[in-house]
Write a protein that binds this DNA or RNA. Structure first.
Lengths: 226, 226
DNA sequence: CTGGAATTGTAAACAGTGATTACATAATTC
DNA sequence: GAATTATGTAATCACTGTTTACAATTCCAG
């Protein structure tokens, strides 16, 4: 990732400070998680005095919210791209694609996922863009769910509950990974990402109307998931 | 809750400082979440100098770990009590009881649930008691799962994946509540706790071998769960 | 008992934090 | 070109976790 932080105009005024501060904060998040971010360090990396950031962000939370907006935008892109590049129009497969892309991004960008999902770090309500991107993902899930029901592909007709269950499952898997509840998984030969995908697919067959394929006896040799 | 903080021996030595500090930290967690805890404030409330706590805890994380141990112990108690007071020996009902007790505790003690589930706050690996209590809950789930499979009550034979899905679902529901992903739920007439329970029961019927009761059309009128 | 050792408190300091204020400089606009 | 506005600096405040040197207390062996 080439940093877009060429401080074009040199001199007293930075000319680009807002974006450079966000970039610095992103970098700090990547280096050591959300707790590693400090306004002062971001200012230092931008080559500016400790008070300068407060001309562009009301407080630290506002800076973190800007970081979250950027992360959320990429998160959404990855998911929408994934579901658009799915060949079939089978709604359940499309739903699975959303979940897989979701988990993939969360597990590969754990610190950023933490930023967008931990509401105490950011000012969720004040950000139009955050709500908008989040709603887009939610609508994607709901759309495939409704279509699946229309085609009578679901086991239960209560798609509201199925949908919440789906979101909770995916969110739970993602957070269990980033919160470190899965220490043993990698050891067992499967990566966290692979395991999470398997569990998601398992769930997808559970909600489906078809009888599940005669249960694979290969027990995945997952021993003691936390 | 009567505080157990009568500083028995007055004078230079406190005599009870370790426990009083934990109590103060617990109080601070209840007042404003984990971020509201500061070692100095805990010391002040214990009537002691800012450096004193470090005679009993190597660092702030160690103090938070002690808080987590207390919370985890109560969390486990509530769950084991709930499952023991379940009349039937139906393993699926017992499994559901675990999940319901889990969600009940998490939603009613959100800040403490945050402490025990956010690994960056505590030193999970160093605490025998945390791992022990956690393992007890996990074993409870696994036990009912294995028994359910033995009685051929499960739709899938892959109980490893079903079990992880169950944990992820419950953890996801709990965290979505405490992370504030459910703002609208309470508005819709149902409490978060009730909704989470419904979704859990929905999941339980999904993993079961029986055909689900002809889908309740009452759509819960949940509009836009985040 | 007594006296040294271990325990557990204090006081002061350090570096780091978010945030505010008064002020200076640069860019913008009339 | 002058006034206004935007955006930087420097200094400062209150607060944080943590460490250090020191003092008071308790404990245990002789």
């Amino acid at each position: 990732m080439p940093k877009a932080e060429t401080p074009r105009r040199t001199g007293y005024h930075h000319g680009n400070l807002r974006e450079v501060l966000i970039d610095a904060a992103v970098q700090l998040v990547e280096e050591g998680g959300p707790d590693n971010v400090s306004v002062r360090e971001a200012a230092k990396r931008a080559g500016v005095s400790p008070g300068a950031p407060f001309r562009h962000f009301a407080n630290k939370t506002a800076l973190m919210t800007a970081v979250a907006e950027q992360a959320m935008s990429r998160f959404r892109s990855e998911i929408t791209n994934a579901v658009e590049s799915v060949a079939t129009d089978d709604p359940i497969e499309r739903f699975a694609a959303v979940g897989i892309a979701y988990l993939r991004w969360a597990i590969r960008n754990p610190t950023h996922f933490q930023v967008i999902s931990t509401r105490s770090l950011i000012d969720w309500d004040s950000s139009e863009s955050l709500r908008h991107d989040n709603e887009a993902v939610r609508a994607l899930v709901e759309g495939s769910m409704v279509e699946a029901q229309r085609r009578n592909m679901l086991r239960s007709n209560d798609i509201a509950e199925t949908q919440i269950a789906a979101r909770a499952l995916v969110y739970g898997l993602a957070r269990m990974c980033i919160d470190g509840h899965f220490a043993q998984w990698a050891v067992a030969g499967h990566t966290a990402e692979q395991t999470a995908q398997d569990v998601l697919k398992h769930f997808v067959t559970l909600i489906g109307n078809d009888e599940p394929e005669t249960a694979k006896k290969a027990n995945l040799s997952l021993e003691h998931p936390d």
